[in-house]
Design a protein around this nucleic acid. Structure first.
Lengths: 151, 151
DNA sequence: GCCCGATACTTTAAGCTTGAAATAAATCTC
DNA sequence: GAGATTTATTTCAAGCTTAAAGTATCGGGC
């Protein structure tokens, strides 16, 4: 019978989901490495800074990416060394540090992002509006529930 | 209009999916750390060895977990140091190394897994059979397509 | 104005992860 | 059956990541 117990199905689904995202990440990591000589974490940080369209607090950066604060420091530091990002002290609050892309960083990222997007599109080419709708609903449910736990 | 172009939707979906799995992973990592003094990679390796119900080739281990071969070596080495796993030379082929859980490892993992499963069940408690069906279909599509690319 | 807890960030140590080089053994080809 | 190629694993260097400890600043209560 099809009605296996829910806990078992949930666990199996989680494992498969994790495997799928790991596979996609591996693919994208390889792609970025070969074609753009960069890494996934660097790309993620640059994406966050690019989207922000302006200086972003270090704490907001790590919160957005769901990584530790020390991690954000480390990756931004490396980007800074390569001239792709820059850190500036916050205006009012002297504890705050803001990060932003340099002009070079914006150019580099724009090129990477265009191809990255194409790659994601290719990897998800079998998903049409219908499947994306279903996924949107599922993600929405999960997010709502986890919001309820924290906030 | 609702019919945004597919590439954009696919990218946004991928980003949200990644965020969701990262959030879940962070939660489970914290859970394993606090309640079982272990880590996600150790847990994953032990899970693979547990499921195998017998010695597993190092190469099969890394292939299953989608991690590099060097990574599998490192994690198994740490488990070995803690008396949770063991490595034995392969029978026929003398290049092969097999990994398996010790009795202690099986006991420890069984306890961890039971609670881990409960935690996943809780995190996915908002997903019933209907949503799991939808996810199963979507994962199936993605896996089929990526199989076609490699194998 | 001073202490005290909270907040923003960095530093550090340990562990994780990768890609590439190294080692060793099997297999193929002649 | 010797030499070349492939396969299984480990080692290595560099980078990533976390949790915890450290530094500096802020803001409130007195």
């Amino acid at each position: 019978m099809r009605e296996t117990d829910l806990p078992a199905r949930r666990l199996r689904t989680w494992i498969r989901l994790l495997r799928m995202t790991r596979g996609m990440e591996n693919h994208l990591r390889e792609y970025l490495r070969v074609n753009h000589d960069t890494t996934l974490p660097r790309f993620d940080v640059m994406a966050a800074l690019y989207r922000a369209k302006g200086p972003l607090k270090m704490s907001d950066l790590s919160r957005q990416l769901l990584v530790s604060n020390g991690n954000a420091t480390a990756v931004v530091e490396r980007l800074e060394k390569e001239g792709l990002a820059r850190r500036v002290p916050g205006e009012g609050d002297r504890r705050v540090v803001l990060a932003e892309l340099t002009d070079k960083g914006r150019d580099v990222f724009a090129a990477q992002a265009a191809e990255h997007r194409g790659e994601v599109d290719r990897l998800f080419s079998m998903l049409g509006h219908e499947e994306l709708d279903a996924l949107r609903d599922i993600l929405h449910r999960v997010e709502e529930a986890s919001d309820g736990q924290n906030g």
